[in-house]
Amino acid sequence: MSEITIFEDEEKALREAETILASSLPEDEPWASYYKDLVIRYRKLLRHTKQLVKMGDAMQSELARARDAAEFQATRDFLTLLWNRSAILGILKAEIARSQRENRPLSLIIGDVDYFKKVNDEYGHLVGDAVLREISERLKSSIRTYDQVGRFGGEEFIIVAPGCASDDAVELGERVRAVIAENPVYTSEGPLSVTMSFGVATYGCAATADVDSLIRAADEALYRAKREGRNRVAG
């Protein structure tokens, strides 16, 4: 454990008291033995205090680490380490409130991996998992820094894009779609070409918008993208 240095004043006081103790104190004065006793107690108390502070600090750091780890586990998707469903919904809710307050648009993009069931069926779940992880990396690297991405469940992902109007959101979705489609995903079963379809919903400044209506709108757009042939963005 690192040395505690917050007791410099007390250390100094102890050194001074010990200096006085080392000089000759009158032996037959009651206060002198009382003083000596006090110095001994003070020395011990200071030593104990430093030990207790050190141990308390260590325990508190340990608790903070445990709390951080628990929070991470509670908010992340275990496979992809993206935000999990409840965390990204929480973020969406907060961003809706913020965009209402600041009167700024907010877009939601729902993406779904095309024919993902086939990947699992043909190559097995381990390959499927590897594909989801690679897609997650590409999603993370292609969004803007203030966008948030989460795994909504299965092969469905959500991007929350604050301040993003409809056109910008479609453009963002298009960029993400291209990053997924332009290079195959390299797996233990060889390179697999993977594409995704995206549905975009934008909340302008209508006060009626809520989490459910935004998700419903993005979902409807996603199904349109699927119907129109997949590997595309519908807004």
Binding site: M1, R47, H48, Q51, K54, M55, A58, M59, S61, E62
Partner: peptide
């Protein structure tokens, strides 16, 4: 590690 470090701390005493 924390429990070990605390043990070391007690040991010094």
């Amino acid at each position: 590690d924390t429990a070990r470090e605390c043990g070391e701390e007690f040991m010094e005493e």
